[in-house]
Simulated scan of single mutants.
Amino acid sequence: MLQIEIPGNETLQLQHLVLDYNGTIACDGMVKPNVLSKLRELSQQLQIHVITADTHGSVHAACSGNFIQITVIGQRDQDRQKKAYVDQLGAQSCVAVGNGSNDALMLENAALGIAVMQEEGCATKTLIASDLSFGSIEDVLDSLLKSKRITASLRN
Rank of each mutant, 00 (worst) to 15 (best):
K83L: 15
I6Y: 04
Q45M: 13
A152V: 00
D103H: 07
Q47G: 12
T11F: 08
N22C: 06
R80S: 09
T71W: 00
C27L: 13
A53L: 03
Q75I: 11
Q3P: 01
H60K: 15
I137Y: 01
G74H: 07
K148R: 14
C94L: 09
I51N: 07
C63R: 11
A111I: 03
N109H: 14
G74L: 05
D131L: 05
A62N: 09
L14A: 04
T151W: 01
Q75Y: 07
T126Y: 05
R80E: 12
H49E: 03
T126E: 03
N9Y: 12
G65S: 11
G98Q: 12
Q81V: 06
Q92I: 00
T71N: 02
C63L: 15
L154T: 05
R80C: 01
I137K: 01
S101N: 08
A111L: 08
A84C: 03
K32S: 09
L144P: 01
Q88D: 10
L14V: 01
K125C: 13
G8L: 07
D77I: 01
R149C: 06
N34T: 13
A123S: 14
A123L: 10
C94H: 11
G98N: 05
P33I: 00
T52Y: 08
L127I: 03
T151Y: 00
D20L: 02
